[in-house]
Design a protein around this nucleic acid. Structure first.
Lengths: 134, 134
DNA sequence: ATAGGTGCAAATGTTTTGCTGTCAA
DNA sequence: TTGACAGCAAAACATTTGCACCTAT
C-alpha cells in the first residue's frame, strides 16, 4: 500500500511495453524491450514496477506451471490457455463464470473474492505444423 | 520419462507424508516430516522424488501466487481455495466442470487436455475469529 | 525541498544438478 | 551385478533488497 506514486519514465515504458503485446511476457522479456527505449533501465526497476502495477491492479501477474511469472497488461478478468508444447500463453475467448464464486460460498463458510482458471493443451500452431516439436 | 523406477524407502516416506495430510504442504515441510522417519534424508532427494511423483501423476504440484510450490497427494482433479489471510490451501467441494474443456475447444483451434481453477478469499477461521490477523 | 524511485550489485530463497557412493531389483 | 537413486554441497535461477544518488511533484 503506497500513499503516493510517482509517474516515472521507467514505469511509463514498462506499462507501454506490456500494453503493446498480447504475449503475456516474462519480466526479463519486458526488461529487454524496455532497454531499447531506456538503455540504462535495470532489471530491479522492472520488477519493482511490475509489483507496484500488480498491487494497484493495473496489470496482472500470472504464475502457472513454471518457475517464473508472466505478466498480463489486461487487468479485466479472463481465463488463460497454456500451450504445453510451445509454452505460449493465450487468452481464452469464453465468458467468465461470475456465479461460481457464490456457489462455492454457499457450499462452504468462506468468503470468495475471485477465481482464476487456466486451460492446458496444445495450440493451433503446434497441432497443425509439427506434433513432434518440443 | 523414466524406463524403470525404484521403490526406495525415501520415496515411500515422502508419499506417506503427503498422503497423510490434507494441508497441501511445501517441499520444505515434507522434508521436515520425512526427517522424523529418515533423519539423513536430504532436501534434494525430496525435490527429486516430488518431481518423479508429479511426472507419473501420483501427486500434483500446485503453484499459485507464491514463490514456492505446494504439493497435493490427491491426483484426482479438483479445485483449490487459497485463503489470502492465513495462506492455507483447501479443497473446494464442488464438481469439476468436465464440459468446459470441450467448450473452449469449440471456440478455438486448440486441443484442450485439462484445466485448473483456484478460488481466492478468506476462510471460515479467518472470517470468524479475527479479521485483522495477518 | 523531499519522499519516492533509480541503478547497481549483493543477498535471498527455492529448486536443480554434479559427483561419488549405495542399494533395490 | 548394475543402473537408478541417495546424500552432500555447490550452482542455478528468478526475484528482492540495501544503499547512495536522482527526480517528479
Amino acid at each position: 500500500m503506497q500513499t503516493k506514486t510517482r509517474n516515472t519514465k521507467q514505469k511509463k515504458v514498462i506499462l507501454e511495453v506490456l500494453k503493446g503485446t498480447d504475449s503475456h511476457p516474462t519480466a526479463d522479456w519486458i526488461y529487454e524491450q524496455a532497454r531499447k527505449v531506456l538503455p540504462d533501465i535495470s532489471l530491479g526497476t522492472v520488477y519493482r514496477n511490475l509489483r507496484i502495477l500488480t498491487e494497484s491492479e493495473v496489470i496482472r501477474e500470472l504464475n502457472y506451471g513454471s518457475t517464473y511469472s508472466r505478466y498480463d497488461g489486461n487487468p479485466v478478468e479472463h481465463y488463460h490457455f497454456v500451450c504445453t508444447k510451445c509454452q505460449r500463453v493465450f487468452d481464452v475467448p469464453i465468458e467468465v463464470l461470475h456465479d461460481i464464486n457464490t456457489k462455492v460460498e454457499e457450499a462452504t463458510g468462506w468468503r470468495v473474492e475471485m477465481h482464476r482458471m487456466e486451460f492446458y493443451g496444445t495450440c493451433e500452431d503446434c497441432n497443425q505444423s509439427n506434433c513432434y516439436q518440443n
